[in-house]
Structures are given as C-alpha cells and as structure tokens.
Design a binder for these strands. Structure first.
Lengths: 146, 146
DNA sequence: TTTATTGTCTATAAACTAAATAGACTTTAT
DNA sequence: ATAAAGTCTATTTAGTTTATAGACAATAAA
C-alpha cells in the first residue's frame, strides 16, 4: 500500500496538471482534492525540494509545475515518498539491502520473482505520466457519458 | 514493501516445498531460513489457520504442507499477511475502500492506473507457485555453475 | 510603509503498526 | 512420567504515519 502522503501527492500533481502553467495556492488544492491543508503543505514542499514543483512566496504566490506533464511520472513520486518500489529489499535497485533468509541471493527464486515484479511495476509506473493520466481521465469521462 | 512476516512466510513455505510430503519442526525452518523462532511460530500458526499448512502436536510432531506446491501461490500468501495487493484502497477488490481525493471514482485516472497495476501484479503473483519457484531455483543454480 | 497573503520551517502529538519475545498451556510418542 | 512439540495470550519495544500548531519569511498591493 502507498502511504497517504504519496497518494495525496499524486492527486495534487494530477490536479495541477490540468492547468500546467498556472499557479495554485495550497488551499485550492487542499479543497479540490480533500487533503488536510497542513499535511499538504509539507507534501508540496517535498515535491518542490525534489524539483517537481516551483513556488513563489508572498501575496499572489503559490505552487506551480516545474516540469511538463509528460515529464512527471508516478515511479518518481512513489520513490520520493515511499522509497523502494520493490516488495522486498533484495529486489530493489535504488534501495537495495540484502536479506537473511536465503543462502545465495543469485539463486534465490523468491528474489527472482520479486525482481521481475519490480521491473514490471517500474515500467508501468513510469508510463503513468501526468499527461497520460489526464488523457485517460478524458477517455473515461466520454466513455461514461455514452 | 512486504512485511517481514510475509517475507518470512514465503521463505518458510518455499523451504517446505523442497520436501513437500515431509514434516518440519519450527526449529528446523527457523535455522534453515534465519527466521526468529518465536516469530516463525506465529507465522506457521497463521498459515495453518489459512489451510496452507497442517500440523501434528507432541513429540514427533511438526508442520507440513496441506496443499501441493502448484496449489500454493504468492498472491494468497501476500493477501493473508499483508492484506490488499493493490497500492491504493480504491483499486483493491478484496479489501476495497473508497478514497476521498477524487470526485468520481469511475473517472479517476489515478485509480485506473493502480487498478491496472493491481491486475498485473495479481497475475504475476498467482503464477508464482511453490512449484514454479522451486523450478526456477533449479534453473538459476545450473545457470550459475556453467 | 503597513497589511494581508502566502510559502517555509521546526516541533510535536496522537495513533497505529511491525517485530519480536515471554511464558503458560496442551498434546502426543516413547 | 517425561521430553518434545505445537497453541495461545499477552506484552514490550521501537518505529512510522498522519496530522496539527505556531513562529517566521517573503511579497504584492493598498
């Protein structure tokens, strides 16, 4: 399961992706996405530190996307907030740690299975960009109307 | 990430799958897989309650597989110990819960993305049976020797 | 230059969960 | 009777997640 923080981050980003050149104040996003305001503040700050968002302080300020919608993908967001995508530390690339349960990692079928799952997952999450998500939402909307 | 409990359970099952008709005492599995003994006890008990293992009490007792290696798959084990396979409650079938961040679930692209990920994950984990894992391990072993 | 607005930062509370351990009890073969 | 094994309940410990409070800094506009 993703943390709420990560899920909130994704929804906030998707919301901003709808008008990718505009600036948003925390309150707007908080209300649009039903995310506790103070909690959202820290999330946006983290996204800013990671280079996905920019901000402008003071009156008339707010947050805005630093990258275009095709450049922001869920794999990056998930890694930022929840760390490893792999289900098991020994199957992670960016957050690798050896396990104690098998004698020889190179020959551990459990690890192999979770490596494959990790690879498939990363591919899918990388393909989920703000752009592709918003396109999909449009498709779902028209499908529902018919 | 899987809980350690779940990872331990998987390794214990794979270990038992190597001699699928034999009985194992907790200590043997604990030492073979480097799993804290008392912790493993509660895990095996849970696997028993779920019908995957049987047990015999008293001297000469132990745990044994209740199903054949092709009948035990990782999807079931993960669900038993960690609950939902989906990354987000609104994308889970067996542990569904609605989220608050979108107005209309039917049209939420975030949910859609995680539904697809869930489906792919479940398929992969279902294909990972004790049998297939042990076969894979044999293959990895011969590959390494060459 | 004051004021209102908005982001930044630090600290901390509250709730929950994971991981592990302890110990008493029960069952069974010998 | 005894030793070996699983069963069950409780509890500890530590860590994480989720959320909030409040002081501070920056900026635009009146």
């Amino acid at each position: 399961m993703l943390s709420k923080k990560c899920k909130y981050a994704i929804h906030a980003l998707v919301h901003m992706g709808k008008r990718p050149t505009e600036q948003f104040v925390v309150k707007d996003i908080s209300e649009a996405c039903n995310i506790p305001r103070k909690f959202l503040e820290s999330i946006l700050l983290e996204l800013k530190r990671a280079g996905m968002l920019g901000s402008k302080q003071g009156k008339g300020g707010g947050y805005f996307l630093r990258r275009t919608p095709p450049e922001i993908n869920l794999a990056d967001v998930v890694r930022l907030f929840d760390g490893a995508i792999a289900a098991v530390p020994c199957a992670s690339f960016k957050f690798y740690e050896s396990c104690d349960e098998c004698e020889d990692e190179d020959v551990c079928a459990v690890r192999d299975a979770f490596l494959q799952l990790r690879n498939a997952t990363v591919e899918m999450l990388k393909a989920d960009t703000l752009e592709s998500l918003l396109k999909k939402e449009a498709i779902l909307r028209t499908k529902k109307k018919r």
